[in-house]
């Protein structure tokens, strides 16, 4: 199963790296957020949230956003692969269904991991002060979460089979998830009703954990809770995706 996963991963990774447009936008997008949106936030918040450095609040949010959008749109690729016949030709091999899906999602995890590291590094000169170990763990949490989200996105792609319905679907799911998790602005600023809704969003706990980790708080319950919830989401989505991949494409 490891070999099969690796074979699928290597194939997808090569294809992605051969697409220069993809490499360019994949790497510049997070930086655009930093340069074009970050300064606004800094001025609005007067330099900090509850006495915290605004960059230390904003950058972890961007990391989670990378995972949500990067992994959320992963399914676009499989719709094209479905049309090319790649999915079917891999499904008629004895390879494990979980390898076919895991090999693909790992490509997204690596991509998001690289983007996250790059984003954190570029954020340094703006005034971000991440804790070394904490931010590394934060990126691992983000990577684990994107594994499950990418798997779910591939599965949605397989179900919908068409970009025209897939794009609004992903937007429709990921945008509320994003807004309700307090990725862009902390939910502490939200009115009561909005905060209650956001508490039903598992990603709210993940972002809290990532923010805590980012500034070096490694042991609080916030971190444990967020990491466990992130892992649970991934396990659940991964299980669903594999089941769906096993079933026929009808």
């Amino acid at each position: 199963m490891l070999t099969e996963t690796w074979v699928v991963f290597a194939r997808q990774m090569k294809q992605q790296l051969r697409n220069p447009v993809w490499v360019f936008f994949g790497l510049t997008q997070p930086i655009l957020y930093l340069v074009l949106f970050g300064p606004l936030l800094k001025n609005i918040s007067g330099g900090g949230f509850n006495g915290k450095n605004s960059w230390n609040v904003f950058v972890p949010g961007l990391l989670l956003q990378l995972a949500i959008f990067g992994a959320g749109f992963a399914g676009f690729g499989i719709i094209q692969e479905l049309r090319e016949g790649v999915v079917d030709r891999q499904r008629v091999t004895p390879a494990h269904r979980s390898s076919l899906i895991l090999g693909r999602t790992l490509t997204n995890v690596v991509t998001i991991g690289v983007q996250a590291v790059l984003l954190t590094l570029v954020a340094l000169p703006f005034g971000t002060r991440p804790a070394l170990v904490g931010s590394i763990i934060a990126i691992v949490v983000i990577a684990v979460l994107s594994l499950g989200m990418a798997a779910a996105s591939y599965t949605m792609g397989l179900i919908l089979k068409d970009e025209d319905s897939f794009a609004p679907m992903v937007q429709g799911v990921s945008l509320p998830l994003l807004l309700l998790s307090g990725v862009l602005l902390p939910m502490a600023a939200a009115p009561g009703w909005l905060r209650h809704i956001s508490q039903a969003n598992p990603l709210s706990y993940v972002i809290d954990a990532v923010r805590s980790l980012f500034v070096g708080d490694l042991s609080s319950t916030t971190v444990v809770k967020g990491a466990v919830i992130g892992l649970a989401v991934t396990v659940l989505l991964g299980w669903w995706a594999t089941r769906r991949f096993q079933r026929d494409s009808a």
Partner: peptide, 11 residues
Amino acid sequence: AQIGATPAPGT
């Protein structure tokens, strides 16, 4: 399989 869409350029 039946002939599919044109493969991605990197194939």
